[in-house]
Amino acid sequence: MASALFNSLVAWADDQLVLGHRLSEWTGKAHVLEEELALANMGLDLIGQARNLYQYAAEVENAGRSEDDLAYLRSERDYRNLLMLERPNTDFAHTMLRQFYYAAFMQRYWQALTGSRDERLAAIAAKAVVELQYHRRHSAEWVIRLGDGTEESAARMTDAVNTLHRYTGEMFDTSADLRALIDDGIATDPHTLRTEWEADVRSVFDRATIAWPEEEPPTQRGGRDGIHTEFLGLLLAEMQSLHRAHPGQTW
């Protein structure tokens, strides 16, 4: 059970860290200062959630590894994040749609985990769920503004849907480790949230005048098994470079 818990904590932590890092890449590049602050703030929330999860994972593993070791000294094949979250930012529409797809799921998943039998996990979830409310709201509003905006913004949002929708199915997958936690009352089966998630996304798409893909594209998966797209290696190379060049360096 300890290893199932460790593996699941690390997979969730990897999700938050990779997406948080992607959002941090907007710093200095966003179209207006206010949105740059919003992206950086959401990234900060996610990295804070990742730290809470890595710290707990390191304690569960009890092998002398720290949260920094888990974040900076594992390579691509050891990362277990969802493929959607490692995708490049592309443009503001892609970034906001990815944020919405994920936050609309994760707000609900954290909510479910607040009832976990594992008190530490429930406490981490209770903090995160309040933060995710704002992520979902902010990104949903942008999906609507851009989808129901100009011809250009609508085309970009549609393009984002065509690119990213195929990655959403992986959010609802259950690994063997996660299954063990579900059976033990520690975690929730993400699949049970799919109907509610889809209704939320569809209602936002309706307001955005964006079409739900007529034919569901085949789901892209592999992140939970460490099989990644070519984008994760580049992200990790940049994120880990300082720590690898100066092992043990602290601020």
Binding site: E34, L37, A38, N41, Y134, R137, H138, V204
Partner: peptide, 30 residues
């Protein structure tokens, strides 16, 4: 916050007027 585009009525800390508007949902600190 689950209600999209809902505005919070915030009173101005200087003149107490509630005729205020949100410029951005996020600021200089989280």
């Amino acid at each position: 916050p689950d209600t999209l585009f809902a505005e919070t009525r915030v009173a101005c800390p200087r003149c107490e007027s509630t005729a205020t508007e949100q410029l951005a949902a996020f600021g200089s600190t989280p």
